[in-house]
């Protein structure tokens, strides 16, 4: 789904590159944590995937396309298969929850009957079925992030990028958002989540890409937030945090995710 080969990014006037020679391959349907200290290049990498920036060296390939070579007028097409959520939610304050989600379909010209049927479904899936007519400032942070996820997911992107989606949320809410993203992933979406939340990464034990000063310094399947030092299970090691609280209506692990249940979905993306 995503191939990075020797990707480098220099910003104009930058003293050092934001990314140096990053190579990685992310398959369709994978879930990947992107970790590393602030300024290590996580956001730059996500911006490259969205073609908000172009790599200065190497190639970024998304869904078989060399992103840097997509002509400007085709970039919207890329962004329809790459959804995105952010730390600050980025909802429109003057629109209701349902209107915020519908906006994403309206502006890509989806027919009205599609919008009318899909929006309530997606709101139900993110656990906001009863709050369709609320405005963002009437919602908690976690609920706002659910709206943002619904908006990113409603167009059925094949890749979902999450840039520190739990950065503004308390631990319990973060866990809820995490399981929502996990559900999106189980519905077949490739998810890349940049995060500083060590306990989530440690609990999920998914593939971890770690950036340091723009270089890829770790690519570990089932990794933790910090470099796993090969060691026997020591009594001092922190107990892994289990993701307990599923959002209301979410099936427990092992069962089919609510994201996959609607008969409509067909091939996702």
């Amino acid at each position: 789904m995503i191939v990075l080969s020797s990707v480098s990014k220099w910003y104009p006037n930058g003293a050092r590159p934001a990314l140096i020679d990053v190579s990685a391959e992310i398959g369709a349907g994978e879930f990947v944590f992107l970790v590393g200290p602030s300024g290590s290049g996580k956001s730059t990498l996500l911006r490259l995937l969205l073609r908000e920036e172009r790599a200065t060296g190497g190639r970024v390939i998304v869904a078989g396309r060399d992103v840097a070579r997509i002509p400007d007028r085709r970039v919207p097409q890329l962004r329809r298969i790459v959804g995105c959520v952010f730390q600050d939610f980025r909802l429109l304050p003057n629109r209701t929850v349902a209107a915020n989600v519908a906006f994403a379909l309206d502006v890509v010209g989806r027919p009205r009957h599609v919008v009318r049927s899909v929006v309530p479904e997606v709101l139900e899936l993110v656990g906001l079925g009863g709050k369709a007519d609320r405005y963002p400032d009437e919602l908690s942070g976690g609920e706002q992030q659910r709206v943002a996820i619904a908006r990113a997911f409603v167009g059925r992107p094949r890749v979902l990028l999450a840039d520190e989606p739990t950065g503004n949320l308390d631990p319990a809410t973060s866990t809820e958002i995490m399981s929502l993203l996990d559900a999106v992933h189980r519905a077949g979406t490739t998810v890349i989540m940049a995060t500083h939340n060590a306990s989530l990464v440690d609990a999920m034990r998914r593939r971890v890409l770690e950036l340091g000063d723009g270089a890829l310094i770790r690519d570990e399947a089932g990794g933790r937030y910090d470099q796993t030092v090969p060691q026997p299970v020591a009594p001092s090691a922190p107990p892994p945090v289990v993701v307990p609280a599923q959002p209301t209506g979410t099936a427990p692990d092992g069962e089919r995710s609510p994201w996959a249940t609607p008969a409509r979905s067909g091939p996702v993306g």
Partner: peptide, 18 residues
Amino acid sequence: MGDAGAQRPGRLMRPGPL
């Protein structure tokens, strides 16, 4: 662009939302 090609890039908004 794969099966996302079903949504053509040039499609404009419907008159109502616009």
